[in-house]
Write a protein that binds this DNA or RNA. Sequence first.
DNA 1: CATTATCTTCCAACTTCATTCATAATATGC
DNA 2: GCATATTATGAATGAAGTTGGAAGATAATG
Lengths: 251, 251
Amino acid sequence: MQAELRHKLIEEYLQEVEFASLEELSEKVDASLSTVRRDLGQLAALGNIKRTHGGARLVQTNKEEFIFTSRQKVESDAKERVAEACAELISPNQNLFLDAGSTIFEVARKLEDKTPHMVTNSLSIANLYAGHRDIEVIVSGGVIYPRLQVLVGDLAVKAYQSFNADIAILGGGGATEEGIMNSHLLLIEIQRAMIASAKKVIFCLDHTKIGRRSFTSLCGWDAVDMLVTNKEASKKLISHIKKQGVEILLA
Amino acid sequence: MQAELRHKLIEEYLQEVEFASLEELSEKVDASLSTVRRDLGQLAALGNIKRTHGGARLVQTNKEEFIFTSRQKVESDAKERVAEACAELISPNQNLFLDAGSTIFEVARKLEDKTPHMVTNSLSIANLYAGHRDIEVIVSGGVIYPRLQVLVGDLAVKAYQSFNADIAILGGGGATEEGIMNSHLLLIEIQRAMIASAKKVIFCLDHTKIGRRSFTSLCGWDAVDMLVTNKEASKKLISHIKKQGVEILLA
DNA sequence: CATTATCTTCCAACTTCATTCATAATATGC
DNA sequence: GCATATTATGAATGAAGTTGGAAGATAATG
């Protein structure tokens, strides 16, 4: 097997599992431990991967989508581009549902000129526009989920059920051939309510999420109208998703 | 098992259970106590985790990070004393309704040790405890009223109607012989809902509000169980209010 | 103050690492 | 096509890092 092919396989595999041991990778690419060690050394030198004792992991791991503060530093370039592209899709005065999560927060930032009406369960987004006179923000209500700055629970679900949005903009923990996944059950419950009450459903996921698995399945691709991601996302998986009738926007 | 994987497992487990003993973790990741100890030391050094005697807990996201707490100026001495006195009245684990407004925000600050369950329509209070694991904060939902950091409207009213509180702690724009007044109709609508669903109603008003008129009448003294104010308040008016069956607390 | 639990420090067993070397695959020159 | 240079691979080796347990120090508990 070619070195290049191995490198690609290793990266893809790490996207799925976040962390893998040398032995695991050795078996996966059918090469000796020495070779895998060399491969990882090269990939690590390029910065694509972080080498650890006994294995390797994706860089950026631990940066879970739903953990961030409103004072966060600039997110990755990819995330910003995705957010920008998504915001472009919105026309003035549309009614939006906005999910919680760092990517969607970035989208919200870029919506200032569109003066949309937005419903959100993200405290961060609520704070962002709390002092803004021109933008109407409806907060869903709910119990504060510590650390995540998200409102969850019955109150939030009912709130989304009682509104109708033109577009729901959502994030997630990962996406595979089967559909979107997310890590927190409480969030999934709310995201499903958003999907049910919105005319159009757009997911914003940067390339690090494409191919990655997460804790629980949120929905299949049939529930999704559009996926906004960036060019670095796995071409193979993207075309597979496209075949399932999802409109794709590459930032 | 690799160190990296153990770290991930430990963090995930702590997110579930909040606190875990060494032994518990040792079993969970199938490693010796020594190893877990070392792992926790490393995670603690990174700040992801807080080490304790015999175990570890998640580090709480710092509430100081939030926009609104820092924006709050030091309030007047009188207001602070009123807030302190009001907080003293609360016993642990009571269910509270917390109004918006600067005085009530000060009360909320002082409730940290009481670990009450609170429902609020104040974004500032929501932010104050957004990262706090021990205090359950329910946000009412509603439309953000710009400048005031308050949620108003139907969603907020309905939220308060659907809960029952032991105590509602409210503020206002002014108080006269006839009762409490407030400036914003939208707020009054919500405050009335709070009063209707609470067993006990406490108003916190510093002396500058006593005797002052405001735009609209909120309620008469018959709806109020207790008034917390400070010694500088008009004695004459206070005794008049007392005669109407309102318990008075002078800070 | 005594008892127990937990922490720190240390060491031996074990795993993983970097380096070296021989062999296999690939490229280059004639 | 054949011989030779270049590179990639896999195994062997001592070095470095990791692990689990034991012993003494320290902290919690009644």
